[in-house]
Simulated scan of single mutants.
Amino acid sequence: MKELEIKTAIQISKSPTDVFEAIVNPVKMSNYFISKGDARMETGKTVNWKFPEFPEMTLTVKVIEVKASELIVFEWEGAKDQFLEVRINLEEMPNLNTLVKISEGKMKNTVEGILWYGRNTEGWANFLACLKAYLEYDINLRNGAFDFMNSKKKR
């Protein structure tokens, strides 16, 4: 049975240095993804992220490796009780563009694994779209995007 692994990518019209800073710097990341991070992502550090739409949740990220403007590797609880590795590769492209490649995994091809695969693939696609919108257009796509999840109104 083949294991599941998430792989996704997007090209961003900014330099690898700009993209890297937007990911490792919690102040910049709070402009498109998190509401707060307690530290910069650096090799060997553990950082905590809070999300604007889920104020009661704190996500702990264990940073494994960071190479400036090239690579960010961390481990997190990608699924309940499953600590998974995330790799973010930054590849310089022509005209100061950056190809951002993300992989996460692996999990067994089970019901739990398939649910993780769908949920986290959606999450990484959202992350990449938000990162691109922030860096290229200074827009925070998450503003109000998840208000429906906290709404007590019945539909």
Rank of each mutant, 00 (worst) to 15 (best):
L4R: 10
E5F: 14
I6K: 02
A9V: 01
A9I: 00
I10F: 05
Q11W: 07
I12D: 02
S13W: 11
S13V: 01
K14R: 07
K14F: 07
S15L: 02
S15Q: 01
T17Q: 12
T17Y: 09
D18S: 01
D18T: 06
D18Y: 00
D18H: 07
A22W: 02
V24L: 06
P26H: 10
P26K: 05
K28N: 14
S30N: 13
N31T: 07
N31H: 12
F33L: 01
S35N: 08
K36D: 14
G37E: 01
G37S: 00
G37D: 12
A39R: 11
R40G: 03
M41E: 05
E42L: 08
T43P: 06
T43V: 04
K45A: 12
V47R: 03
V47H: 05
N48W: 08
F51G: 08
P52C: 12
E53F: 09
P55V: 00
E56K: 14
M57D: 14
M57V: 12
T58K: 15
L59Y: 13
V63F: 06
I64L: 14
E65F: 00
E65V: 03
E65L: 00
V66I: 12
K67L: 11
A68I: 00
S69D: 15
S69A: 15
E70W: 11
E70I: 00
I72V: 10
F74K: 08
W76V: 10
E77C: 12
A79Q: 09
A79D: 13
K80I: 11
D81F: 07
L84R: 12
L84V: 13
V86D: 06
L90K: 03
E91M: 10
E91D: 15
E92M: 10
E92I: 05
E92D: 15
M93N: 11
P94V: 04
N97Y: 11
L99H: 05
V100S: 05
K101C: 08
I102P: 01
E104D: 10
K108I: 04
N109D: 14
N109P: 10
N109G: 05
T110G: 08
T110R: 11
V111D: 14
G113C: 06
G113N: 14
G113W: 03
I114W: 08
L115I: 02
W116R: 02
T121G: 12
T121P: 09
G123K: 02
W124H: 03
W124I: 07
A125N: 11
N126T: 15
F127Q: 01
A129Y: 13
C130P: 03
C130D: 13
C130Q: 10
K132W: 03
A133E: 04
Y134L: 03
E136S: 09
Y137N: 09
D138S: 13
R142A: 09
N143T: 03
N143Y: 03
N143P: 05
N143W: 00
G144H: 15
A145P: 02
F146H: 15
D147S: 08
N150K: 10
S151I: 08
S151N: 10
S151K: 06
K152E: 14
K153F: 13
K153I: 06
K153H: 13
K154L: 13
